[in-house]
Design a protein around this nucleic acid. Structure first.
Lengths: 336, 336
DNA sequence: CCACATTATTGAATCGTTTCATGAGGGGGT
DNA sequence: ACCCCCTCATGAAACGATTCAATAATGTGG
C-alpha cells in the first residue's frame, strides 16, 4: 500500500481533509468530539504528515543549515551545539553540512540547500570565492549569518572572533617568554581566519623584532601539523616556538616533535588555537587561544531569527567576540 | 517578487512547462535549439528547482540520514565520511543527525525523518528501546541499515564490529602484561556496544582469575572518564590497569590520572577503544582497539543501496568486522 | 419568531514539479 | 498519394498538504 494521506484519514474519520488539517495545525478550532475521532483515525492508520507537501505549500522549509569547514573539528561541533537549542525551540530543524574546506563541496551543498528552500543559513565560508554564491542565496531571500567571518565587510549579519587580536595574544605570549625565533604553521592562507591569525602574529613579531617563519599547510588538521614539523626539523637554526593556526595542527605538530625527541616546551614551545577539549589532555597540555564557541553559535542563531522576524526593515548586525589566551604546560617557562 | 518557477521560465522561453522539465531531466529528448533557449531563460531569471515539489511528486526524498550517537566522537565522523562518497555518487544527499545518546532526541529525529520521507537510514540505535521506532520506520517502507549494532538479532541489514571480541582483546592484552586488578570504565550499560565490550572483558577476567571492577558512567565522553577516575582514586587497593569503553573516556581518564600524579603506564595502564586520531597523540600514546571505521560506513551505505535496488525480494545481510588491538605506550611493560 | 452572532465544517484553489497520453510536423518507402 | 514512423512539444492530471471564503448548525437577545 502506498503511504496513507490525509484523504485516507479524512475518509476513515468521516470528515473532510480540511478538518484533518485543522486537527493537526489548529486543534483549538475543532470540536472536541471530532478531534478525538480524527486523532483515533490517525493512530489507527499510522498516518505521518508529508513534509514535502507541507513545504511546497508553505514555500519554505523549516530547516536551518549550518555549513562548517570541518565537522571533525570540535570547534565547529561546539558552535553547532550552541546554535541548536535556539533553533529547535523555535520549531526549526538543524542540518549540518561539511564543506571540508573545499569550495566545490561547499558549492554543492549551497546548491542543494537553495533547492530545498531552507529557512536560513549559518555559514563559515571557505574563502573569498564563496562570496558570489553567498550573495546569490541572499538575493534569493535566504537569510544568512556569517560565522566566524566577515565582521563588517559583507552586507550580512555576522558573528566573529577577533582573530587578529588572537594572533597577537599568541605571539605576544611567546615573545614575553623570551622566544626570538617563532614559526607559524597553518593554511591555506586563503582561509581568512588563518590570514588574520597570521597577521596578528606578524604585527607582534615586527613590533618586537622577532624572527618569524611561516609554514603554509594545505589544511587545518592533524596531518598538516605533523608534516610541517617534519619539514621544519630538516632545517638548521630552527624556531624555538610554534604558533599553530588551530589545535588540531598543534596536536599534530606536538606529536611529530615528541616522535623526534624534541622536548616540549623547553626545546620548542607551542601555542594552539581554539582550546578544544583535547588541548588540555594532550601529551603536553597545550596553551591555546580560546574562543567562545557555543556562544558564537547561539548568537548566530539569534541573529538569524531576528533577521527572519524583522523582515524587510532589518539592519544587519555584526557581533565580535574577543578571544582569550589559556596558558598551559606547552609554553611554560619554568618547566625547563 | 516571489521565487521564479518553471512557469516563468516556460513563458520567457516561449515553451510549455513540460518542456522545461524535460530540459532539466531528460535533455536528450529536447531539440538542441529549444534546449539552449530554455537554459538561457533559466540563467536569465536565476531559476532554482523547488525540491519540495519534486519530492512531493516523486514520493521520496533523495536524502540518506545517518543517525549517530555523538557527532563529536571521531569514530562516528569517520563512519559518516566512509559512507558519504557512495551515497553522493548515487545522487543522494547525506544528512547527519546526532542523537546524543538520548532516546528522546533520537525519537524526535526519527519523527522528522519519517515526515521527510527519507530515502534510507543508517542508524546506530541508542538502546533497545529504540527498536519499536525502528520497526515503525521499517514498516513504513523506509529501508535502513543498523550500524555497529544488531548482528543477526534484528530483521535488518547491519554492519557491526565484534565488540565482545574487542573486549577480549583489550582484557587479554592487560592480563598478558601481568595485571591482576583491572577496572572497566564506561556506560551506560544499556548501550549494547558498552555491554558487549564489558562482556568480552569479563570473560577473559573470569577465565584467568583476574579481579575486575566496573565503573559505570552516564555517557561515553571526556568528562565521564575524568569523573570515574576521581572516584576510583578515593579507594584503596586500586586497579593497576583500566579498560575504557572508548577513547574519549580513556583520554579523560588519562588526564585525571596525570593530574593526580599517577604515572601511566607503570602505575596504571590504560586501553581505550576506537583508536581515534587523538589516541596516538595523547599525553601517553594510547593503546586502543581499532575498528575499521570508514569501511563500516562504506559497507553500510552499500547494503542500503542494495536493499533499495533489490526491493521486495531482498534478504537482509549482516556484516561483522573483527577489531584489532593497537599497542602503544599506555600499556607498555618495558616503560617502567 | 426573526435577526444576528458564534462556532464547526466543508470544498475548492493553490503551491511547483513530473509524467504521460496526445498531437503536430516531417521525411521515407511503396 | 498514402501510410507509417520518428522526433519534439504540449497540456492536463497527479502528488499531499494548507488556507480561506462560504455555508450549515446552533444559540441569544429583542
Amino acid at each position: 500500500m502506498a503511504t496513507t494521506s490525509m484523504k485516507d484519514v479524512a475518509r476513515a474519520a468521516g470528515v473532510s481533509v480540511g478538518t484533518v488539517s485543522n486537527v493537526l495545525n489548529r486543534p483549538e478550532a475543532v470540536a472536541e468530539e471530532t478531534r478525538t475521532r480524527v486523532l483515533a483515525a490517525i493512530g489507527e492508520l499510522g498516518y505521518v504528515r508529508n513534509d514535502s507537501a507541507r513545504q511546497l505549500r508553505a514555500g519554505r522549509s523549516r530547516t536551518v543549515a549550518v555549513v562548517v569547514l570541518d565537522v571533525a573539528n570540535p570547534f565547529f561541533t561546539d558552535v553547532v551545539r550552541g546554535a541548536e537549542p535556539l533553533i529547535e525551540s523555535a520549531g526549526g530543524v538543524v542540518t549540518v553540512c561539511d564543506s571540508g574546506e573545499d569550495v566545490r563541496r561547499e558549492r554543492r551543498h549551497l546548491e542543494i540547500l537553495e533547492e530545498q528552500r531552507v529557512l536560513g543559513l549559518l555559514i563559515t565560508p571557505v574563502d573569498d570565492s564563496s562570496a558570489s554564491w553567498i550573495e546569490r542565496l541572499s538575493g534569493h531571500d535566504i537569510p544568512l549569518v556569517l560565522v566566524d567571518r566577515g565582521a563588517g565587510r559583507h552586507p550580512h549579519c555576522s558573528v566573529a572572533v577577533d582573530d587578529v587580536h588572537g594572533g597577537r595574544l599568541a605571539a605576544g605570549h611567546l615573545v614575553e617568554a623570551g622566544h626570538e625565533r617563532i614559526a607559524f604553521i597553518g593554511g591555506p592562507t586563503s582561509i581568512p581566519q588563518v590570514a588574520d591569525r597570521l597577521a596578528g602574529c606578524r604585527q607582534v613579531c615586527e613590533e618586537s623584532g622577532t624572527h618569524l617563519e611561516v609554514y603554509t599547510t594545505a589544511g587545518l588538521n592533524f596531518a598538516a601539523g605533523r608534516e610541517a614539523v617534519e619539514q621544519m626539523l630538516g632545517r638548521e637554526d630552527r624556531p624555538t616556538a610554534l604558533f599553530c593556526a588551530n589545535d588540531l595542527v598543534a596536536l599534530g605538530a606536538l606529536q611529530a616533535l615528541t616522535m623526534h625527541g624534541v622536548k616540549v616546551p623547553h626545546e620548542c614551545a607551542i601555542v594552539g588555537y581554539d582550546d578544544i577539549d583535547f588541548a588540555a589532555a594532550a601529551a603536553v597540555p597545550l596553551s591555546s587561544v580560546r574562543q567562545p564557541r557555543s556562544q558564537l553559535g547561539r548568537t548566530a542563531a539569534q541573529l538569524l531569527f531576528d533577521e527572519i522576524a524583522e523582515g524587510e526593515g532589518h539592519t544587519h548586525r555584526n557581533v565580535v567576540f574577543q578571544p582569550e589566551l589559556i596558558a598551559r604546560a606547552s609554553t611554560s617557562v619554568d618547566a625547563s
